[in-house]
Amino acid sequence: MNKVKVAVAQISSVPDNSVATAEKAAAYIEHAATKGARLLVFPEALLGGYPKGASFGAPIGMRKPEGREAFQRYYDAAIDLDGIEVDILRTAAAEHDMFVVMGCIERDGGTLYCTVLYFDGQDGLVGKHRKLMPTGAERLIWGFGDGSTMEAVETSFGTVGAVICWENYMPALRMHMYAQGVNFYCAPTADDRDTWLPSMQHIALEGRCFVLTACQYITRGEFGDKHESALGDDPKTVMMRGGSAIVDPLGAVLAGPDFSGESLLVAEADMEAIPRGKFDFDVSGHYARPDIFELQVDDREKAAVRRVSRKD
């Protein structure tokens, strides 16, 4: 298959209602299918929401009661991997024979993780990636992923992997993705700054891969009255302005960046552009210097408690 239609969905969450968000995402899966897309990428933390501007009542050395209430609401909005939201997306991906990369807040016991889910058509949920390093105050509300969820996924049209938001500034993680032969490097994010697109172009050039980045477009009014916001309470305030884009293996922008509102960006990926790009630069191949540099990746799951049972 030489050419593949790919897409990114620049949409907002329905904060505090992950089922409604999943249903909205399913409608975009159907929309992308009408455009011929085989791969669709959604923003970081779309299911469960990205609480832009919130501090969760946590000054240094104390936690305020209202912060605990805010976390309770956020915890309730997160998803379980056996929940209805996953069923909605699994059904939509199967109906339209699409590979879907979905950002979510995953609930596991008492901890929340910023996670990407992989859905592959009839095979359903085929994998996930938990964000390794939450940024700044995200560490207050999200746990840390380990090396066991960094595997790319093989599909009928190419290899897909996801790196979340500022994980993209971790060179070793990028190198691990390139070494897996990622053709479609997906970057769900909450970063809507002007500096984000140049970073995505750099990654496309570095990995000689297609980069698909998706960010929400969402206003203050969509969060509701209970959301604490350092950006104020004017319902028209744009909390995240998008900037989603699709970039080719030589850094050319095929679609986006879009800052106008919710949208679906679609582009045609010429798979032959990947070997053409690697002719003069293959970062984990002929341009590597393993005699000087070596990356060791620990992909073991790290459980907090491991039971060693006595055999009878």
Rank of each mutant, 00 (worst) to 15 (best):
D87R: 09
L173M: 10
A162V: 01
L197N: 10
K64C: 10
R276E: 13
P134C: 01
G221E: 02
S284W: 13
T195E: 15
E69P: 01
R174F: 11
M200D: 01
A93Y: 01
V19H: 07
P257V: 02
V8G: 05
A26E: 09
T91Y: 12
G232M: 01
W196P: 00
L265F: 00
M1S: 14
F184W: 07
Q180D: 04
A230P: 02
S284E: 15
D16V: 08
D76H: 10
F184Q: 02
A172F: 13
R310G: 09
L39I: 08
Y217I: 15
M133H: 10
S284V: 11
I141H: 03
Q296P: 03
M177E: 08
G103R: 02
A27I: 09
C165E: 12
W142T: 14
D16K: 12
P43W: 04
R174D: 15
G147R: 01
I141M: 05
S260K: 06
P257Y: 09
G147D: 04
E44W: 15
E30K: 14
P249W: 03
Y118A: 07
G147L: 03
L40P: 00
A245D: 04
I84V: 13
G53M: 10
D80R: 13
I11A: 10
A190E: 04
G243M: 04
V182Q: 00
V160C: 03
L265V: 05
F210W: 10
V308T: 11
P188D: 01
